[in-house]
Amino acid sequence: MRRHGPTVLLLLTGAAVLRITLFGDLCLRYVQAGLRPYLIVSGVALVLLGLVTAVLRDEHEHEHGHGHGHHHGPRTAWLLVLPALALLLFPPPALGSYSADREAAQRAAQGVGTFPALPDGDPLSLTVAEFSSRAIYDSGRSLKGRTVRLTGFVTRGDDGSWYVTRLLVTCCAADATTGKVEIRGADDDAPPTDTWVTVTGTWHPEGTLGSDAAWPPVLDAARTIRVKQPADPYEKP
């Protein structure tokens, strides 16, 4: 069986990549949507390479008549099949509260200044990153008096506070950074950690703009509802 190891590994890896890209949105747990076409091409290439390898091996063994007894290599090489098989059968979930707790909050780089005007209409749907940047750095206080709507997963602080949290991904899950907004005024019975929610409320100013006291920004919640995790759980820069 060892002689089939490379072929099996190529086919399994290719099939796993195609499963998470062609048959759903699982790949968005790990990479930006713009990288999906490259993953599809890679998956197809791996499957084709595995098939070609199998055909060439069979032809070689048929012509030379030594299909056994001359294959060497460590049996531990079969362990390389396990990650591909795991991705094919049990794809890991998107990053959640564990990753958020380990990642120090990354703040907007532009510093204090004015921001473009917000669209008319309330409630206004904003990303966690957009809300955070304006709450911490906008000298024009564009959030004042506006009703906003944020969606993210629940994380908790050591002091009992809870947050709507999102991970911001530039390329893939490996470079994810965390943004979060503290929720106040909601029911004391906050949703469990990692539950996805949409919170509607108003900005609660805290501290001096651009200071540590302004982080994390605060939202006075008027309504909190549980929602399904979006197909693409990450925010983009």
Results as ranks from 00 to 15, higher is better:
Met1Cys: 07
Arg2Thr: 08
Arg3Gln: 13
Arg3Ile: 09
His4Trp: 15
Gly5His: 07
Gly5Tyr: 14
Leu10Ile: 03
Leu10Trp: 04
Leu10Phe: 10
Gly14His: 05
Gly14Trp: 01
Ala15Ser: 15
Leu18His: 05
Arg19Phe: 05
Asp25Tyr: 07
Leu26His: 06
Val31Asp: 03
Ser42Ala: 15
Gly43Asp: 12
Val44Gln: 09
Val47Trp: 10
Leu49Glu: 07
Leu49Ala: 15
Gly50Leu: 07
His62Ile: 02
His64Tyr: 12
Gly65Leu: 10
His66Pro: 03
His70Trp: 05
Gly73Met: 07
Arg75Asp: 12
Leu80Glu: 00
Val81Cys: 13
Leu82Ala: 14
Leu85Glu: 02
Ala86His: 08
Pro91Val: 01
Arg102Glu: 13
Arg107Asp: 12
Arg107Phe: 10
Gly111Arg: 06
Val112Ala: 13
Pro116Glu: 11
Ala117Arg: 09
Leu118Lys: 09
Pro119Glu: 06
Asp122Cys: 05
Asp122Gly: 04
Asp122Ile: 02
Leu124His: 01
Val128His: 10
Ala129Met: 12
Glu130Asn: 11
Glu130Arg: 12
Ser132Tyr: 05
Asp138Cys: 10
Ser139Ala: 15
Arg141Tyr: 13
Gly145Asp: 10
Thr147Tyr: 01
Thr151Cys: 01
Gly152Ile: 03
Asp158His: 10
Ser161Ile: 04
Trp162Met: 03
Arg166Ser: 14
Arg166Lys: 11
Ala173Glu: 05
Ala176Met: 02
Thr177Asn: 09
Thr178Glu: 13
Gly185Pro: 10
Asp188Ser: 13
Ala190Asp: 10
Trp196Thr: 04
Trp196Gly: 09
Thr198Gly: 02
Gly201Trp: 09
His204Thr: 12
Pro205Met: 07
Gly210Asp: 07
Asp212Lys: 00
Val218Ile: 14
Leu219Thr: 02
Arg223Gly: 01
Pro230Val: 06
Pro233His: 04
Glu235Arg: 11
Glu235Gly: 15
Lys236Asp: 13
